[in-house]
């Protein structure tokens, strides 16, 4: 009895080994084909890391301008994510559930901030919300001035980054079967309860993935920020702006900030990947 079992097991193990070997042999050409791209993407990241030492980084991180840029970047990008979740979730739900030309148009309009060059986004924001802008002139009369404030940084980030969340969340909501929602409704659940208990638990990976994309895009925002919000340490100088300026003045500082940005982004993405895999 035990002998047969051992036998079966060993044969099974053998087959597994063989199929895994077979699998490796088959994927070898694919591996060769993807290697140049893979190396190309990994090399600059490793080069960046190889040029910095922990000691030099720690020395630069405590510099007031560097610390200011890091805290401004983190706070503004997190506010952007919160604003995006609040406004983007209902929008994504409507996009997933509504039919008609007007929603197709809205869907297309939402693609624009993702494909337009960030400098164009910055100019568009200036024309809309600048002191002489279409909306901005009325805000200015009310004593509300956005230019050169952290609020302008958040607006620039939200404009370019929010669509990533909306797109991903829409896909997530689309994947939730309407029948499930309708069944719960028939059972007497209110639409908010249905959303909370049925839709959200089923769609959350897409929502989380979208939120992370929005957050990462907001953290890296440069063009729209420098045009719309300007550049002042502690107020509008986020990490990407400080990196750009540092490149011209203090290369070591730019390098430090670049690595910090990389580490934060990598850490965040890793946590989210881990959370999604545990599911």
């Amino acid at each position: 009895m035990s002998k047969t079992m051992d036998d079966t097991q060993s044969r099974l193990a053998h087959t597994n080994q063989r199929s895994s070997f077979e699998h490796k042999r088959r994927s070898l050409p694919l591996l060769v084909a993807c290697l140049p791209l893979l190396l190309f993407i990994v090399t600059p990241i490793l080069a960046l890391l190889s040029r910095t030492s922990i000691a030099a980084m720690l020395a630069h991180i405590v510099e007031p301008e560097v610390a200011k840029a890091i805290s401004l970047s983190i706070s503004t990008s997190l506010i952007t994510v919160v604003l995006t979740l609040i406004g983007g979730t209902p929008l994504a739900y409507l996009l997933a559930r509504q039919r008609g030309r007007i929603w197709t148009l809205i869907d297309t309009l939402l693609d624009l901030p993702m494909v337009m060059p960030p400098a164009v986004a910055g100019i568009a924001l200036l024309v809309a919300f600048g002191r002489r802008g279409v909306v901005g002139q009325y805000l200015d009369q009310l004593g509300l001035s956005l230019a050169f404030t952290p609020a302008a940084v958040v607006l620039a980030q939200t404009f370019v980054a929010a669509p990533y969340y909306v797109k991903s969340a829409t896909t997530g909501f689309l994947a939730v079967e309407r029948e499930l929602e309708q069944a719960a409704m028939i059972d007497g659940a209110g639409s908010l309860r249905v959303f909370w208990l049925i839709t959200l638990p089923l769609a959350w990976p897409a929502l989380l993935g979208g939120a992370v994309m929005t957050w990462a895009r907001a953290l890296g925002e440069f063009g729209a920020t420098i045009i719309f919000a300007g550049n002042f340490p502690g107020r509008t100088q986020t990490m990407p702006l400080a990196i750009y300026l540092g490149f011209e003045v203090q290369f070591e500082v730019a390098l430090t900030l670049a690595v910090v940005l990389l580490v934060i982004s990598f850490g965040m993405l890793a946590i989210v990947k881990w959370a999604l895999m545990r599911r």
């Binding site: 200036l126 002191r131 002489r132 050169f148 002042f232 107020r235 509008t236 300026l245």
Partner: peptide
């Protein structure tokens, strides 16, 4: 009173011409 440190002279010009500054 400095609200922004711009990247080049043209950016300063644009910000003032637009009335932002």
């Amino acid at each position: 009173n400095v609200r922004s440190n711009e990247q080049n002279v043209r950016a300063v010009l644009s910000k003032v011409a637009l009335g932002e500054a």
